[in-house]
Simulated assay, not measured.
Amino acid sequence: MDSSLSIFSLIISAGFVVQVVMFVLVLMSIYSWTVIMSKKKTLMDANKDIKRFHNNFLADTNLSILHGQIPAQVSNRTPMEHIFGAGYGEFTHTTSASNQALVMNSERAYRSMNTAVNNEVDRLDHGLSVLAMIASSSPYIGLFGTVWGIMHSFIGLASVKQATIAIVAPGIAEALIATAFGLFAAIPATIAYNRLITQVGEIQNKYTSFVEELFVTFQRQK
């Protein structure tokens, strides 16, 4: 390729609007990758926490001992510790040993744990909507830059008596770069969003399974 038609030179020589579009798309791509890497680490930590706490739960089903091992401060608890603590706190809210009291305590604990699960899933979901927005809007933003650039190129051809490929090609090429930038931002965001939202759903299922398992354990307490 001729050096005069290199990608870098086309970006530099592009019109102001097209350059603004490309700059916006670069920012969107950087932000999407920041969200992707941050969310990936958060989900990995959540899976490790689920595995560790569930193993401890299976190793010792003495709920009072297990509750004594978690931090007293709610802000210092991991998600699984928070879910367990919310349920255990409601289950032991009253000291009555009657069957009716145990049933009521178990139901309150079940609702409290589900609320904690919903709050945790909301935390895991946070930021994914922006990732979906980037995935869906980036191609259109890039297309806008392309249309604007091509339109500007054809307007410039109005003053040329004879249009040739050598004259038309640079303007169209620099306009098409905006579409390439849009796809560059959209494709990773789309793939990452679909993968991350699936992982959030899997983690939610694990939380729900633990809540059901713990609810049965509460009902067995005498």
Rank of each mutant, 00 (worst) to 15 (best):
A163C: 08
A158H: 04
I150N: 06
G182N: 05
A175Q: 07
L176D: 01
K161V: 12
A178M: 09
G171K: 11
I167D: 08
I150V: 15
E174I: 08
A163S: 14
G149W: 00
T164L: 06
T146R: 00
S153L: 02
W148F: 14
I155F: 10
T146C: 01
E174Q: 15
I177W: 05
I165K: 08
G149S: 05
A173G: 10
F154W: 09
W148I: 07
G156H: 11
M151Q: 08
G149I: 03
G156Y: 03
A163W: 01
G182A: 07
T146L: 02
A158P: 03
A169E: 05
I172P: 03
L176G: 01
A166V: 12
T164K: 01
A178S: 15
K161N: 14
A173K: 02
E174K: 15
V168M: 14
S153G: 15
I172V: 15
A180F: 08
H152Q: 12
I177N: 03
S159N: 14
F181C: 11
G182F: 00
A163N: 08
I167M: 12
T179D: 02
L176R: 04
I165N: 09
S159Y: 10
F181S: 07
M151T: 12
P170W: 02
S159G: 11
F181H: 00
P170H: 04
I165S: 13
F154G: 07
I177H: 07
H152V: 13
I172H: 05
I172G: 03
G182E: 02
F181L: 05
V168H: 04
F154A: 05
K161M: 09
E174G: 04
A158T: 13
I167W: 06
G171C: 06
G156F: 00
G182C: 00
A166I: 08
A169N: 05
T146I: 00
S153H: 03
A180G: 13
I177G: 01
G156P: 07
S159F: 10
G171T: 09
E174A: 14
G156K: 12
I155E: 12
L176F: 01
V160K: 12
I167G: 10
I150H: 06
S153V: 09
I165W: 11
I150G: 01
A178N: 03
P170N: 09
G156D: 14
T179V: 05
A173F: 08
S153A: 15
A163Y: 06
V168W: 02
I155N: 13
Q162F: 12
T164I: 05
P170T: 09
T146Y: 03
F154H: 10
E174H: 06
I167Q: 10
T179F: 02
A166G: 15
A180V: 15
I167F: 11
K161I: 11
W148L: 02
I167C: 08
E174V: 08
A158L: 11
A163I: 15
A178G: 08
L176T: 13
I155A: 10
P170E: 04
G156I: 05
I172D: 06
V160F: 11
P170C: 10
V147T: 06
W148H: 08
A169T: 09
L176Q: 08
Q162D: 13
G156S: 12
A178H: 00
F181W: 10
A175P: 03
Q162T: 13
